[in-house]
């Protein structure tokens, strides 16, 4: 059976890059009100939301994670949690 292709589907498949199952980390950036400190003993980083006083320690380097092309599902879950807590914000769409 031949699938009927709508105008929207054509647009979607032709222009959106996210049609593969890979997840991009470019969807989040650190908010302007979040402060970050990388500990000198290599134990990780701390994020501090100066508007709410919330702090969270991370054993991973969040800056390099956000700069990665691809991330796994667990890391994406972490980024979603950090976003919900106000440390990260969704990046503006590219299109």
């Amino acid at each position: 059976m031949i699938k009927k292709i709508t105008t929207w589907d054509v647009f979607h498949h032709e222009t959106l890059p996210g049609t593969t199952p890979k997840v991009t980390s470019h969807s989040y950036t650190i908010t302007g009100s979040t402060l970050l400190h990388k500990f000198s003993d290599g134990s990780g980083v701390v994020l501090y939301q100066k508007n709410t006083g919330a702090a969270t320690g991370l054993t991973l380097d969040i800056e390099s994670v956000l700069a990665r092309e691809n991330i796994d599902a667990d890391t994406l879950k972490l980024l979603n949690q950090l976003s919900a807590s106000g440390f990260l914000t969704p990046s503006p769409a590219k299109y």
Partner: peptide, 25 residues
């Protein structure tokens, strides 16, 4: 404790950290 563990424990005992913003951090 490493610095990360130490910071998180100390932050729990900070009374007015949110009022000091960047200076408190």
């Amino acid at each position: 404790l490493n610095q990360n563990q130490g910071f998180m424990q100390l932050a729990q005992n900070a009374v007015n950290l949110n009022l000091h913003g960047q200076q408190g951090f």
